[in-house]
Protein backbone atom coordinates (compact mmCIF):
# COMPACT_ATOMS: atom_id res chain seq x y z
CA UNK A 1 0.00 0.00 0.00
CA UNK A 2 2.78 2.37 0.96
CA UNK A 3 4.44 1.81 -2.40
CA UNK A 4 1.32 2.87 -4.29
CA UNK A 5 1.22 6.00 -2.18
CA UNK A 6 4.79 6.87 -3.21
CA UNK A 7 3.67 6.65 -6.81
CA UNK A 8 0.38 8.58 -6.59
CA UNK A 9 1.94 11.23 -4.38
CA UNK A 10 3.87 12.64 -7.31
CA UNK A 11 0.97 12.24 -9.66
CA UNK A 12 -1.62 14.32 -7.83
CA UNK A 13 -1.04 15.40 -4.25
CA UNK A 14 2.48 16.66 -4.80
CA UNK A 15 2.29 17.27 -8.51
CA UNK A 16 5.70 18.75 -9.29
CA UNK A 17 4.38 21.40 -11.66
CA UNK A 18 0.98 22.48 -10.42
CA UNK A 19 1.49 22.06 -6.68
CA UNK A 20 5.23 22.24 -6.01
CA UNK A 21 5.77 24.68 -8.94
CA UNK A 22 9.06 23.16 -10.03
CA UNK A 23 10.40 22.88 -13.56
CA UNK A 24 8.58 25.95 -14.79
CA UNK A 25 10.86 26.59 -17.80
CA UNK A 26 10.15 23.39 -19.77
CA UNK A 27 6.50 23.53 -18.73
CA UNK A 28 6.02 26.95 -20.26
CA UNK A 29 8.12 26.32 -23.34
CA UNK A 30 6.98 22.84 -24.25
CA UNK A 31 3.24 23.13 -23.69
CA UNK A 32 2.61 24.73 -27.08
CA UNK A 33 1.50 21.47 -28.61
CA UNK A 34 0.36 18.14 -27.21
CA UNK A 35 3.02 16.15 -29.06
CA UNK A 36 5.82 18.34 -27.73
CA UNK A 37 4.42 18.07 -24.23
CA UNK A 38 4.27 14.27 -24.27
CA UNK A 39 7.77 13.97 -25.73
CA UNK A 40 9.22 16.36 -23.16
CA UNK A 41 7.33 14.66 -20.33
CA UNK A 42 8.48 11.18 -21.26
CA UNK A 43 12.08 12.24 -21.82
CA UNK A 44 12.14 13.88 -18.39
CA UNK A 45 10.43 10.84 -16.84
CA UNK A 46 13.07 8.49 -18.26
CA UNK A 47 15.87 10.65 -16.90
CA UNK A 48 14.10 11.03 -13.56
CA UNK A 49 13.61 7.28 -13.01
CA UNK A 50 17.18 6.39 -13.98
CA UNK A 51 18.84 9.20 -12.04
CA UNK A 52 16.70 8.56 -8.95
CA UNK A 53 17.58 4.87 -9.01
CA UNK A 54 21.31 5.43 -9.54
CA UNK A 55 21.56 8.19 -6.96
CA UNK A 56 19.72 6.00 -4.48
CA UNK A 57 22.17 3.18 -5.17
CA UNK A 58 25.11 5.50 -4.65
CA UNK A 59 23.71 7.33 -1.64
CA UNK A 60 26.08 5.62 0.80
CA UNK A 61 29.10 6.09 -1.47
CA UNK A 62 28.77 9.78 -2.36
CA UNK A 63 30.32 12.03 0.31
CA UNK A 64 27.85 14.56 1.61
CA UNK A 65 29.92 17.64 0.81
CA UNK A 66 30.23 16.99 -2.92
CA UNK A 67 26.85 15.40 -3.47
CA UNK A 68 25.39 18.10 -5.72
CA UNK A 69 28.15 17.90 -8.37
CA UNK A 70 27.85 14.10 -8.23
CA UNK A 71 24.10 14.29 -8.81
CA UNK A 72 24.63 16.68 -11.70
CA UNK A 73 27.08 14.29 -13.36
CA UNK A 74 24.67 11.37 -13.01
CA UNK A 75 21.76 13.40 -14.36
CA UNK A 76 23.80 14.87 -17.22
CA UNK A 77 24.91 11.38 -18.17
CA UNK A 78 21.35 10.16 -18.51
CA UNK A 79 20.30 13.30 -20.36
CA UNK A 80 23.07 12.71 -22.89
CA UNK A 81 21.87 9.14 -23.26
CA UNK A 82 18.30 10.28 -23.93
CA UNK A 83 19.58 12.92 -26.36
CA UNK A 84 21.58 10.37 -28.35
CA UNK A 85 18.73 7.84 -28.46
CA UNK A 86 16.27 10.50 -29.54
CA UNK A 87 18.58 11.90 -32.20
CA UNK A 88 18.99 8.39 -33.62
CA UNK A 89 15.41 7.13 -33.51
CA UNK A 90 13.16 10.21 -33.31
CA UNK A 91 15.04 12.94 -35.22
CA UNK A 92 11.89 15.05 -35.80
CA UNK A 93 11.11 15.23 -32.12
CA UNK A 94 14.77 15.87 -31.36
CA UNK A 95 14.67 18.96 -33.56
CA UNK A 96 11.39 20.11 -32.06
CA UNK A 97 12.59 19.87 -28.45
CA UNK A 98 15.87 21.53 -29.38
CA UNK A 99 17.84 23.06 -26.54
CA UNK A 100 15.15 22.16 -23.99
CA UNK A 101 16.18 18.51 -24.20
CA UNK A 102 19.69 19.33 -22.98
CA UNK A 103 18.18 21.62 -20.39
CA UNK A 104 16.58 18.65 -18.61
CA UNK A 105 19.94 18.65 -16.77
CA UNK A 106 19.03 21.82 -14.92
CA UNK A 107 15.37 20.92 -14.47
CA UNK A 108 14.64 21.61 -10.80
CA UNK A 109 12.35 18.58 -10.52
CA UNK A 110 15.14 16.10 -11.16
CA UNK A 111 17.78 17.60 -8.91
CA UNK A 112 15.07 18.38 -6.37
CA UNK A 113 13.90 14.76 -6.20
CA UNK A 114 17.48 13.51 -5.93
CA UNK A 115 18.04 15.84 -3.01
CA UNK A 116 14.67 15.41 -1.30
CA UNK A 117 13.87 11.76 -1.94
CA UNK A 118 16.44 9.55 -3.64
CA UNK A 119 19.24 10.12 -1.16
CA UNK A 120 17.05 8.97 1.72
CA UNK A 121 15.16 6.00 0.26
CA UNK A 122 15.95 2.61 -1.27
CA UNK A 123 16.29 1.96 -4.98
CA UNK A 124 12.81 0.62 -5.61
CA UNK A 125 11.04 3.44 -3.82
CA UNK A 126 13.22 6.01 -5.53
CA UNK A 127 12.51 4.63 -8.98
CA UNK A 128 8.80 4.58 -8.12
CA UNK A 129 8.97 8.16 -6.94
CA UNK A 130 10.71 9.06 -10.20
CA UNK A 131 7.95 7.36 -12.14
CA UNK A 132 5.22 9.15 -10.18
CA UNK A 133 6.88 12.55 -10.39
CA UNK A 134 7.65 12.03 -14.07
CA UNK A 135 4.06 11.13 -14.86
CA UNK A 136 2.85 14.03 -12.75
CA UNK A 137 5.07 16.32 -14.81
CA UNK A 138 3.82 14.77 -18.06
CA UNK A 139 0.21 15.04 -16.90
CA UNK A 140 0.53 18.73 -16.05
CA UNK A 141 2.30 19.44 -19.34
CA UNK A 142 -0.38 17.53 -21.22
CA UNK A 143 -3.18 19.45 -19.49
CA UNK A 144 -1.58 22.78 -20.30
CA UNK A 145 -0.76 21.78 -23.85
CA UNK A 146 -4.34 20.63 -24.40
CA UNK A 147 -5.74 23.98 -23.28
CA UNK A 148 -3.21 25.93 -25.33
CA UNK A 149 -3.42 23.84 -28.49
CA UNK A 150 -7.20 23.39 -28.55
CA UNK A 151 -8.05 27.02 -27.81
CA UNK A 152 -5.04 28.61 -29.50
CA UNK A 153 -4.65 26.52 -32.61
CA UNK A 154 -7.98 24.68 -32.86
CA UNK A 155 -6.25 21.32 -33.03
CA UNK A 156 -5.35 18.38 -30.78
CA UNK A 157 -2.05 16.54 -31.27
CA UNK A 158 -1.88 17.90 -34.81
CA UNK A 159 -5.45 16.95 -35.81
CA UNK A 160 -7.52 20.03 -36.49
CA UNK A 161 -10.87 20.53 -34.78
CA UNK A 162 -13.30 21.84 -37.41
CA UNK A 163 -15.86 23.82 -35.49
CA UNK A 164 -13.25 25.77 -33.49
CA UNK A 165 -11.39 27.04 -36.56
CA UNK A 166 -13.16 30.41 -36.57
CA UNK A 167 -12.68 30.96 -32.85
CA UNK A 168 -8.94 30.50 -32.46
CA UNK A 169 -7.09 32.58 -29.85
CA UNK A 170 -3.57 32.56 -31.35
CA UNK A 171 -2.00 34.45 -28.43
CA UNK A 172 -2.41 31.31 -26.30
CA UNK A 173 0.20 29.47 -28.36
CA UNK A 174 2.52 32.49 -28.14
CA UNK A 175 4.76 33.06 -25.10
CA UNK A 176 2.33 35.36 -23.22
CA UNK A 177 -0.32 32.65 -23.42
CA UNK A 178 2.03 30.23 -21.69
CA UNK A 179 2.34 32.44 -18.62
CA UNK A 180 -1.39 33.16 -18.60
CA UNK A 181 -2.54 29.53 -18.89
CA UNK A 182 0.02 28.39 -16.31
CA UNK A 183 -1.12 31.05 -13.84
CA UNK A 184 -4.78 30.16 -14.34
CA UNK A 185 -4.08 26.43 -13.93
CA UNK A 186 -2.29 26.93 -10.61
CA UNK A 187 -5.12 29.18 -9.46
CA UNK A 188 -7.64 26.50 -10.49
CA UNK A 189 -5.80 23.83 -8.54
CA UNK A 190 -5.65 26.14 -5.53
CA UNK A 191 -9.38 26.81 -5.84
CA UNK A 192 -10.38 23.16 -6.28
CA UNK A 193 -8.32 21.95 -3.34
CA UNK A 194 -9.40 24.92 -1.22
CA UNK A 195 -6.08 25.24 0.52
CA UNK A 196 -5.83 21.53 1.33
CA UNK A 197 -2.95 20.94 -1.04
CA UNK A 198 0.30 22.50 0.16
CA UNK A 199 0.29 25.08 -2.64
CA UNK A 200 3.35 27.24 -2.46
CA UNK A 201 2.61 30.89 -1.92
CA UNK A 202 5.93 32.04 -3.27
CA UNK A 203 9.12 30.66 -4.69
CA UNK A 204 11.53 29.55 -2.00
CA UNK A 205 14.49 27.30 -1.38
CA UNK A 206 12.53 24.08 -1.20
CA UNK A 207 13.37 22.04 -4.23
CA UNK A 208 15.58 24.73 -5.68
CA UNK A 209 18.73 22.91 -6.78
CA UNK A 210 20.87 25.80 -5.66
CA UNK A 211 19.63 25.51 -2.11
CA UNK A 212 22.45 23.15 -1.23
CA UNK A 213 25.04 25.71 -2.25
CA UNK A 214 23.36 28.49 -0.32
CA UNK A 215 22.67 26.50 2.81
CA UNK A 216 26.21 25.32 2.89
CA UNK A 217 27.15 28.73 4.14
CA UNK A 218 24.50 28.63 6.80
CA UNK A 219 22.04 30.95 5.13
CA UNK A 220 19.00 30.41 2.99
CA UNK A 221 18.49 32.02 -0.40
CA UNK A 222 15.93 34.38 1.08
CA UNK A 223 18.52 36.01 3.28
CA UNK A 224 20.81 36.70 0.35
CA UNK A 225 18.95 39.89 -0.40
CA UNK A 226 19.34 41.39 3.07
CA UNK A 227 23.03 40.78 2.97
CA UNK A 228 23.28 42.40 -0.44
CA UNK A 229 22.27 45.78 0.92
Amino acid sequence: MKKIKVFTNGLIKENPVLVLVLGTCPTLAMSVSVINAIAMGLAATAVLICSNAVISLLRKVIPDTVRIPCYIVVIAGFVTLVQMLMEAYLPDLYDMLGVYLALIVVNCIILGRAEMFANKHNVFESALDGLGMGFGFTLALLLMATVREVLGNASFAGMSIGFLQDYKIPILTAPPGGFLVFGCMIALVAYLTRGKAPIKKSFDCEGCPSAAFCRKEGKACGTAETEAK
Partner: peptide, 13 residues
Protein backbone atom coordinates in the same frame (compact mmCIF):
# COMPACT_ATOMS: atom_id res chain seq x y z
CA UNK B 1 -7.07 31.41 -5.41
CA UNK B 2 -4.94 33.79 -7.47
CA UNK B 3 -2.85 35.03 -4.53
CA UNK B 4 0.89 34.40 -4.74
CA UNK B 5 2.25 32.60 -7.76
CA UNK B 6 -0.80 32.64 -10.09
CA UNK B 7 -1.20 36.43 -10.13
CA UNK B 8 2.57 36.80 -10.60
CA UNK B 9 2.38 34.58 -13.66
CA UNK B 10 -0.54 36.54 -15.06
CA UNK B 11 1.46 39.75 -14.61
CA UNK B 12 4.41 38.09 -16.33
CA UNK B 13 2.08 37.24 -19.18
Amino acid sequence: AFKGIPITLVAAS
